[in-house]
Amino acid sequence: MLNVWVWGLFLPLIFRGYNPGTESKAPKIYTVEIREMKFVPAEIRVNKGDTIVWVNRDMVAHNVTEEKSKAWASPLLPVGKSWKMVASKNSAYFCSLHPVMKGRIAVQ
């Protein structure tokens, strides 16, 4: 009797763990902070469809620009402003105002 109880409680939990369908479908939101002339974290791993928000917590204005061909870019982000994008593919990006600031998006 107790066995049934225990299994009844734990089986759904165990199967949930094995079921990638339901949980990972909900898109997530990730934040990249811009501070001290860096993207933090510099590399972010997300699933396709997740949203990435960049927040400028630095002393000066920045932007977020796809590095290879400028395929996408944020507008100018003054101090305190943020910008978001839905991740669709792997990208290397930088701040075109300060080209030494670099970041990377890895889409799983």
């Binding site: 001290e36 002339m37 860096k38 630095d58 002393m59 000066v60 300060h98 080209p99 030494v100 600031m101």
Partner: peptide, 13 residues
Amino acid sequence: QNILPALDAHLQH
């Protein structure tokens, strides 16, 4: 102290 990272990025640029 907070100005230093910007100065450093300018130097590298």
